[in-house]
Every structure is written in structure tokens, then in C-alpha cells.
Design a protein around this nucleic acid. Structure first.
Lengths: 210, 210
DNA sequence: CACAAAATGCCACAGTGTGGCGTTTGCTCC
DNA sequence: GGAGCAAACGCCACACTGTGGCATTTTGTG
């Protein structure tokens, strides 16, 4: 019934592996052209005000091929976000899980941020700006986040489900707060510090007085 | 640019005030007919699989009038959710804000739950089920939640914004967790207890070990 | 009863997303 | 290098959501 398409939809451009066959290289090229043109075009004219046809016309592909590569118009705009969480899940699987889980979540994200390449750090802030300007994109992003959270919970299936789910929600909330503070300037080196700060503020937030 | 339409879109059916004029009573009647038919129809055939025309045909209204009453197809399905948060903000405004803010948020929701009438407790679980079955509805709900959070933060604008925003996120996360545990049976009297439990678990969640 | 305002219905249109189907293009085997 | 095959593509038609214009009906008011 439900979509749940978080998994390998995104070809991980961060782990650069040029496919051998010409056909796949061509396909990847139009894919990247769509992504690149999408964030610039949407950035200029706004996501909601830019018809999909404008994108298709500029990249010179048909509607049919676009929807073979992406699930929706939102999908192509949010590629950078999906890539981040794909890598995160990958990192999370390989990390040693001992000690406080909150630290594990944080460490996994810090490692993830180190893995992202320069091109991603160029596209990600642009994507954040698109999200901030479009309610539709924001809703889509939140739903994607929820799917990732479910995925994380699934891999840690323990007895104390309530505590676990709460902690995951808290971590993602801290991540979003860090992004909000990062958005104005978007200096790549500062994001880890902001995230650390948000995470270390979680305890005092609970005992905040009016 | 953005929608931000949380405010008085929903005619508070919980504060029952029959409007004097016949015209407004008629309008309210078709409104309620749309809401009622929507949740039953979507519940039978699924939100994504039910065209809007099916609803319009059954209630015997035109497309035009529907969109004068609701912003979107999602909007009519989520009326119960919007009503809840409308009342919540209303309660929150009137409550005394002293002591730990976390307790204030919780108290406001407990009061809100007491204010909701019987008809709401019939429709709300149905709405939750619709959300659980449709990704589109889920995304729409999450976005609405984010708008409410922004609204709450706006009314408490203090210096420590980071702590405040984190706390609000935590509270809403606890609320969603409580709803998840409530969904299977949906006994009205149990929801407050579940919410209390989720809120009191927040502290130990932060120090959860792997 | 007459007039103004509001609500409605009908129609046409833009935009997103899907499926069928014929055609091109790249891959592979000989 | 050529024949056959499978994948990708483009074109077309269609369903569905959402918007705006305009005439018509209904309701409140003097």
C-alpha cells in the first residue's frame, strides 16, 4: 500500500564508480544533468512556480524518461538529501554500536559528513534553500526523514521500543535544528560543530523552564 | 511564498455555535457532509485509490464548491487532526506558563484531549488509520505538525531558541509515539496515560545504551 | 417585492503522473 | 563487421488534482 522507497533509489555519486558500459554512462549523464539543471532552475524560478516541462525542455528529455529516473518532481530536487541519508545508513551499518546510543547516532552522522564530497557540499545548501521556500518540498522531506527513522529503528530492534523511537526522533530533531542554524552561511566546516552543539543541548532542553 | 495556513481554516465544531443565518448553516452542513463522507469513503477504498470525484458525486457538490471549503483532497481527510491542534494552540494560549516547559506542553495537551467531544473521538482514530495507510497523507500531516511547532515557538520567543526548538520537537515526537501505541485499540481513556508515559520516558531515552 | 451579496454549478485550462507502443541505440555473439 | 536482442527512449493518450472565469441560483435586507 505504502511507498517506502528510501533504499537504493539513488545512484551513489559520492562513491564514484563509472559504470563500464556506455549505455549506463549515458543514462547516468542525463540523470546528473536533470539533477543539476533542476536545482539551478528551481532555485531561480522557485520550485512551485517552475513547471516540470521547463526542466524537460532544457535538458531535452521526454516526460517518460524523466519518470523512469525519478519518482516525482520533488524527487529530483531532493537528490542531495536522499544521498546523505543513504550514506548515513551505510555508515551506521558499519559502525561499532557500544556505549550511549545517542553518541552512536552522532558519530555516524559526523563520519557521513566527512564522506560527502565537494560537489555534494555545493548542492546540499541549494537544496536546503529550495526546501525552505516550498511547503511541498518540506512535506516530502519530512516524510523521507520518517522513512529513514523507521529504517534505523528496524536495524536496532530491541525490547525497549519506546525509548529507542524517542531517541531516534530526538536525534533527527537535533539534526534539523543544526541545519537551520547552518543554512544562513553554509560553511561546510561548521556543520559538525553545530550538530555537536545541538546534541549536547538536548539534556538541558528537557529541563527548560518557562 | 509559503502556504502557512494553520490558522482559522477549521471551523471549530467542538465549540458548537450554530450560526444564525440559514446560509451559513447550509454551508456548514455540506462541509460536515464532505468531512464525514470523506473519512468513510477513504477508509473503504483507500485515500490514494479514491478519486475526488467519487466524493463529490456522493455528496452531490461540484468541484468548485469543494475547493472553496478545503485547500486540497488531503485537507478534508485531516480535519480531525487540524481541529486537535487548533484547540491545542487555543488551550496553550490560555494556560499559565510556569515551571518546566515540558510539563506545560504536556498539561496543555491533556486539557485539549478533555475538551474534544465524542464525535471527534470517533473520527480521529479513523483519520489516524488513513494516515498510516497513505504516504501522501503522512507527509501532509508532518508538514502541518511543523507549522504548529513554528507557531508554538513563535509564542514563546525567548533568547534560548535552540533549547526551545529542541524541546518542542521532543514533545511532538512523544505525542506521535503515544499515537502509535494508541492506534491499535484507540480506547479514548487510554491516550492521556500513553502520552504521560512517553513524556516521562524522554529523559531515560537520552541515556539509552546500545 | 426588489435589489445586492453570497454561494453554487458549469466549463475550460494548467500541471503532474501513468501506461501502451513503436522506434532508436547500445550490447553481444558469431 | 553484421545479425539479433534487450534496454532505453520518444510520442501519444489518459486519469487526477487544482484554478479561474462567468452565468445562475439562493439568501439576506430594505
Amino acid at each position: 500500500m505504502r511507498d517506502l522507497g528510501v533504499l537504493g533509489t539513488v545512484i551513489a555519486m559520492t562513491t564514484v564508480e563509472q559504470p563500464a558500459t556506455l549505455r549506463e554512462r549515458k543514462k547516468l549523464r542525463t540523470r546528473q544533468a536533470l539533477i543539476e539543471t533542476a536545482i539551478t532552475l528551481f532555485g531561480e524560478r522557485g520550485f512551485d512556480n517552475t513547471p516540470l516541462d521547463a526542466l524537460l525542455e532544457q535538458v531535452e528529455v521526454s516526460r517518460r524518461t524523466f519518470f523512469r529516473n525519478f519518482h516525482s518532481k520533488e524527487d529530483v530536487a531532493l537528490t542531495a538529501v536522499k544521498q546523505l541519508w543513504d550514506i548515513y545508513l551505510e555508515v551506521f551499518d558499519g559502525i561499532e554500536k557500544s556505549g550511549p546510543l545517542a553518541d552512536v547516532f552522532l558519530a555516524a552522522m559526523l563520519t557521513t559528513l566527512e564522506r560527502m564530497d565537494e560537489d555534494w557540499y555545493r548542492r546540499f545548501p541549494l537544496t536546503l534553500q529550495l526546501i525552505a521556500d516550498s511547503a511541498a518540498l518540506d512535506g516530502y522531506t519530512l516524510r523521507h526523514c520518517a522513512e529513514v527513522q523507521a529504517e534505523i529503528a528496524c536495524r536496532l530492534d530491541e525490547q525497549n521500543r519506546l525509548e529507542l523511537r524517542l531517541l531516534i526522533e530526538f536525534f533527527v530533531a537535533a539534526w534539523r535544528c543544526a541545519l537551520d542554524e547552518w543554512l544562513p552561511d553554509c560553511t561546510p566546516g561548521e556543520l559538525p560543530a553545530l550538530l555537536r552543539r545541538a546534541c549536547s543541548t538536548m539534556n538541558s532542553a528537557l529541563s527548560l523552564e518557562a
